[in-house]
Every structure is written in structure tokens, then in C-alpha cells.
Nucleic acid binder design. Structure first.
Lengths: 216, 216
DNA sequence: GCAGAGAAACCGACCGGCCGGTCGGTCCTG
DNA sequence: CAGGACCGACCGGCCGGTCGGTTTCTCTGC
């Protein structure tokens, strides 16, 4: 359809758009939403303010797209990891671990999703809330299945999902703020025990799942 | 020291300062930090911008003082409620309940502490982090005592405290965002069960504590 | 294969609103 | 009448967004 050398203008534009997005991601993660000027993004992506505004309607739109795609990636990753397991409790466990592992390796991602919303102002509450809902719903799903399976006793899984997410969120936040940097994954064993216990999984079973999962 | 009618200028000034603080509290809680203009605070407190700046050095200072005193009040309240109990697990339980009860009755307070930091920008991360540390340390304290008592098995109480706080925080956040408003206290029974279980308190004991506490 | 029309992509100077903070002045009160 | 308390017009920086203009590509017709 096109020769290898020739670049349709679209193609170049697409690449530029991506560059802008990358630059925005980094800059938002480093300085926060409010503190990031469009000019900074333009400079970092070797474009111009006008160029940025050619591709995006508003600053907010950039941030939204970034949050959405980032969250998409994470959710997708979690769902892939989870697919290997059939026991819903093990799935929930893996989900937690995947999130921690991912953030441990992509601090910026964590900053964008969990901290940057900070400084973004009230307009983004909805956006952030959506993120929270999305992740806690994921967890609630696993817990629901576990209840149906009879693996755990019935309970308000919505609240449990929220609580799990909140706990996870807090641990990640702390890690992001920790001054002498810490190892995020160090928290995993304790956290999984806390969370699994909280929905009534017996200690023996928790150890059992751990043994199954370890091999990765 | 002074006659009932006469007002020393100091006294009037003090009252004014308070009025400003009140107005700031309400406005911050309603609109968020960033979205609140000093002029709005001045107007609401029937003073002027200059007046506000006579009492406070910066906008940030107002917010800080508000957060500090609000957190102080809450911590104090929790500690008072807790004092009545001797069993550390019951204390932790009561602490959770007190926080929920307090917020249920003072939505604004919750907004200020948990949501407003939002929109306050990166400068406040430290402030917010401090708040989180403070509350989770409170919980960690109870858990530590429970461990020493032998009431619960040893575990990383720091992480547990953070997780508990995170869970609580998330529940409150959701309640604040819920569109058809919900009853915050409805979450309490589930939440307490989750949290107490998470540190290994047996279900029987959880019910037992509930029975003791109910009478308030 | 090339002129050139036209559109897409891009640039950056500039505008304008917003708002924190200042400052010279006024008003009480003791 | 001194000085603490208070007022409000004003300043100035910041930054999101605009807009007229330029560059770069594509496509057509010859």
C-alpha cells in the first residue's frame, strides 16, 4: 500500500502524537497535573504548544487519555495473569501480586494513577473514582465467584472489594512516598495474608495457595 | 477580667480569626482547595481579603491549620472513645467505629480531610501523608498491644495498620462520592469483620466483642 | 516527473482570565 | 492619638488556549 521509505503524513503525525503522550506521561508523573505546563510537554516532545493543541483539545483530554490507557494496560495485565488460575481465591491473590509487581517495576505508572490525580483538582474526582470503581469491581468479581463456589462464606463483596483496593492503594501510596525507598514487593506476603484472611480463607489454605503460586 | 459588654480588640480579633477559619473550612470542603479563592473566604466571613491576610500569612497556612486542628479533633475523639475499653482489639474496633460515626455526622470534615487534599497540588502530599501516617500509626499501636497481649499472632503491624487505614479511607471516599447518598454506618459491620479477621481474630471472638460494644 | 493547488500538520507570539499576595490608607479602641 | 485591626484597589505571574501564518506532504492533471 505504501513503500517502505515514504511516510504518509498521517504516519508521522501518529508518531508525533505518541511522542506527546509519552512526554505528557513522564511530566505528569514527575510534577503532577497542575504543575505541568503544556509548554513543558511540548518542549519535552520536541514539538510546540500549537502542535500539542493540534492533537489534543485540552490539557484535560491528554490526562484523561493517559489515565484511561494506563489503567487499561494494567487491567489487561491482571486479567492475563489471572487467566492461568481457576480457583477464584488464587485469582484474587494473583491479581494483588500482579498489581504490586507491575508498580514495583513501573513507578511512574503508579505515580500517574495513584498520586497525580492529586493536584488535578475536583474535576478529576469522577475520573479517579472511576478508576477506583474499576479496580475494586475487578476484585469484587473474584470474590463473588469464590462465594458462589462455596470457597468462602457469603459476605458483602462490594465492600470487601473496596476494602481490598483501599488497602492495596494505601500500601502503594506509602511506597511512593517512602523517603529511603523501600521494596514494594516486601509488603506482598503480609498483605495477601491480611486480605485473604479478611474474607475468611483459612490460614492453611492461604499457605496452600502460596505454595501453588510461588513457581510463578 | 473584662466587663460583659466591652470587647477588647483582641477578643474581637480572635473571634474574627475564628470566623475566617470557619468560612475557610466550609468553602474548602465545598469547592476544594484550588477552587477556593481567598476572596470567597473573605466574603463568607464578612471580612476582606486584607483582613484574611492580617490573620494568616498564606492560603496554604489556612489550609494547614484547618487540617491539623480537624485531625486533632478526630484523633482526640477516637482516643476518648477508646479509653473506655481495655482489650486492644476492642479498642481498634471502637476506633474504626468512631471514625465512621464521626464522619457520618460531619460530612464536611470528611471532605476536608480525605478529599480536599485533592486539588491541593503536590505541595500537600507531605501534609496528607502525615495525616495517613498519623492515623495508621494509631491503629498500628492498638495492634501492637494486641500482639504483646498475645490476643493475636505476631504480624507486620505497620503494614496491617496501613491496610486498615487504606480500607477505611476507601470506604469513606466512596461514601463521599456516592450519588444517591448512602448510609456510611451500614458498612461498619462488614468492615469490622473484614479488618478483625485480617489480623487473625476468630469469628467467635469478633461476635463476642460486638456484643460487648453494642450498648455503646 | 513535475507544477502547483490544497489540505493536513505544525509553529509560537500573543491574549486574557484568574488569583495569591501587597500596600497605602482608614477606622476603631484604649 | 498611638497602634492594632482591618480594608480593597491594585499588581504581577502564570498558563491554558487561540490564531494567523508557515511548512510539509499528497494528489491531480498534464
Amino acid at each position: 500500500m505504501s513503500h517502505e521509505k515514504t511516510r504518509e503524513p498521517q504516519e508521522r503525525a501518529v508518531e508525533r502524537r505518541e511522542r506527546i503522550l509519552d512526554a505528557a506521561f513522564t511530566t505528569f508523573a514527575e510534577n503532577g497535573y497542575r504543575e505541568t505546563a503544556i509548554d513543558a510537554i511540548a518542549q519535552r516532545s520536541s514539538t510546540s504548544k500549537g502542535g500539542v493543541y493540534f492533537h489534543f483539545a485540552t490539557k484535560e483530554a491528554i490526562f484523561r487519555e493517559l489515565m484511561r490507557t494506563t489503567a487499561d494496560k494494567l487491567v489487561e495485565k491482571v486479567e492475563r495473569s489471572v487467566a492461568a488460575e481457576s480457583d477464584p481465591i488464587a485469582q484474587a491473590d494473583i491479581a494483588i501480586r500482579t498489581v504490586l509487581e507491575t508498580f514495583a517495576g513501573h513507578r511512574r505508572m503508579a505515580r500517574l494513577l495513584f498520586v497525580d490525580a492529586f493536584g488535578a483538582g475536583r474535576i478529576f474526582h469522577a475520573q479517579v473514582a472511576e478508576l477506583h470503581v474499576r479496580f475494586s469491581a475487578l476484585i469484587t468479581g473474584y470474590l463473588d465467584r469464590a462465594v458462589v463456589d462455596g470457597t468462602i462464606d457469603p459476605l458483602d463483596t462490594r465492600i470487601a472489594g473496596e476494602a481490598w483496593f483501599g488497602a492495596l492503594n494505601e500500601i502503594v501510596d506509602r511506597w511512593l512516598m517512602a523517603d529511603p525507598p523501600t521494596q514494594l514487593l516486601d509488603a506482598y506476603p503480609t498483605l495477601r495474608t491480611l486480605l485473604l484472611r479478611s474474607v475468611g480463607v483459612a490460614d492453611a489454605r492461604i499457605r496452600e495457595i502460596a505454595a501453588t503460586l510461588r513457581p510463578r
